[in-house]
Design a protein around this nucleic acid. Structure first.
Lengths: 188, 188, 188, 188
DNA sequence: AATGAATGAGGATTCATTCAT
DNA sequence: CATGAATGAATCCTCATTCAT
């Protein structure tokens, strides 16, 4: 249908790819332009600066991840919520491995603007809230929710990074890991 | 003994700090020199290039971490080995948080030389071997050892990153996490 | 009559305005196009280049000024001629303050072509000839005619610039200045 | 003695020369660097930007001119004050023709910063104050002081520009012009 | 050894000009 | 004839590296 990719989209895609490969600071604009198949000046017709492009890429993907993670969990048990979140992360990291790598395997401080940082905060908060809810219900063990999230999300990132680095990670293995990580969170 | 910090040491320390804060590509040599309290030219008397300095920092700390992780585990159970490794990581990340952040929270591909990459490989192998040993003994559950390590090390990194970002993480919490992560590895 | 402003005229007008505000080199083509209410490409259908546009603007106004200054002064006294020239300048600077500012308050060397420079020369000559005539008749004091013109025209430019910068300059003041400047030229 | 010209001085001198020749916007940094006999990067060690260099040049010369014009005129008649100011301008324009051309024959709006504009204002005020004083004493004719200054300073600029363009202007001619311009100001 | 001003290749950004629609 | 997105050479600026002191 809409086979025509807009220039802006081509640039965002190229930038994601180049930034993921070389880090933001290690990337040069001509490389992004070339990978997008456009001239350097064209980038500047769509984004006011390299930094703006970096933030656009960040917001595009962090925003999508946040949207997917935000599900009205009314009436769900925390166990079910956790399963859902894990599935969302797994799907995101499977469908958009480059984007997940860009978001989670490198450091962004230094070029993110306020909007980007707001997205980061909102995303971080989501996990802590899930855990806190679980603790209130007695489903999740005691401890600083941020720490529990750090542990669990860290485990997920480790798994995804392994997949990104070439290791074959099957759905079954994602499921096994999910169970194991829930074990790590649940009331003993 | 160490009555005098050598210029080289001051440079390595400054570089660690600057690279951790701004990433390698995002750091500029004069900033490193200034933080070390020396002139730019002085850096070039101790290291042939920025890249060499980057690799020196990487090798200094990755090497120290590897040394500490390498313990002749003859006769130890995998459970005990794991506890030991966890303690080494905890101590390293507690004593040298900046170094751990430098090593694990950012991307190094792009400037590491062969020696540095060899250290990375050796370190990665260590974990997989521990897990494989545990599987042979029936202490650790089935699955690709690399994946299990990714999961467990990811969890540790998550925890350490939380501590690095300012969250208070007590020894008790490291211990609780250790138990939880072992649960994630052990035979069910 | 002039029911429709042609695109070309709109461009010349916009260019005059932009060049006067930002100087020729400091102006950018899209700004001219925007102020003319057309697309950038449209400018290039009417003028082959920015430089050609600059010269067109210069010639339009320098040409008009020259035309007005050229009056067959047969039989007039130099005093009368001077009064006439002053009146022409006053009217021009009053009716077309932006054009006068463009022509006289900035430097054009660097983009003017031969035709433009010929206009400049012709205009400059006019004044010197008037003075020379006056000297022959004994109406104007001795001295290099170019210098006397420089003095008198400088005074006029100063006055016009003051008006341009916002000072209210009445017709009476122009007249008083005319008398004073003639005093500066006439036989003592 | 101090035959060694500092790099900063060489840059200011080169910049004055290039800006005078091509206008600020029409000048390119490498041209300035080359004329100063240094590399481009060197300019940026001494001035943070092209704009800062432009302002430094402007302030250097406008500041010097202002300093010279500022003379405690206690007890002097306005006639004497005027003679002094004229002499100062003549000397300045004779000794530093390039600087005077830079300051007075082109438009600076667009890159001047607040400090530069303050200097412009202070300089402009000086003339108006002289005239106002003269009017109070009955030495100068009635009229907006700013207008009278515009007329007189315009005449001076015209003369100096003529000299700059190659016309030989002798001291005697400067004196004659001074008398003529005073005539233009004085009570009739 | 240490210094830091100078260098200039390289990277970010601008803008006159083109051309497919 | 008009449009304005695209182009890429030209321009501003940075920063790893050198070298005279």
């Amino acid at each position: 249908m809409d086979r025509k990719v807009t220039t802006r989209e081509a640039l965002l895609e190229a930038a994601l790819s180049v930034f993921t490969e070389h880090t933001y600071a290690g990337s040069i604009v001509p490389m992004v332009a070339e990978r997008a198949g456009v001239a350097v000046g064209t980038m500047y017709r769509h984004f006011p600066s390299k930094q703006a492009l970096g933030n656009a890429v960040y917001q595009q993907w962090k925003g999508l991840l946040l949207d997917r993670l935000r599900v009205p969990a009314e009436g769900m048990s925390t166990r079910a919520e956790f399963a859902h979140v894990w599935a969302v992360l797994r799907d995101f990291a499977t469908e958009h491995p480059e984007a997940f790598a860009f978001l989670e395997y490198q450091q962004h401080a230094g070029y993110l603007d306020d909007d980007s940082e707001k997205l980061t905060d909102l995303t971080n908060r989501l996990g802590a809230e899930l855990v806190a809810r679980g603790q209130e219900r007695g489903e999740v063990r005691a401890g600083d929710p941020n720490l529990l999230v750090a542990l669990a999300y860290g485990a997920f990132i480790g798994l995804a990074k392994a997949a990104w680095s070439g290791l074959p990670v099957t759905a079954a293995e994602f499921d096994a890991a999910e169970a194991a990580v829930w074990d790590l969170l649940r009331r003993s």
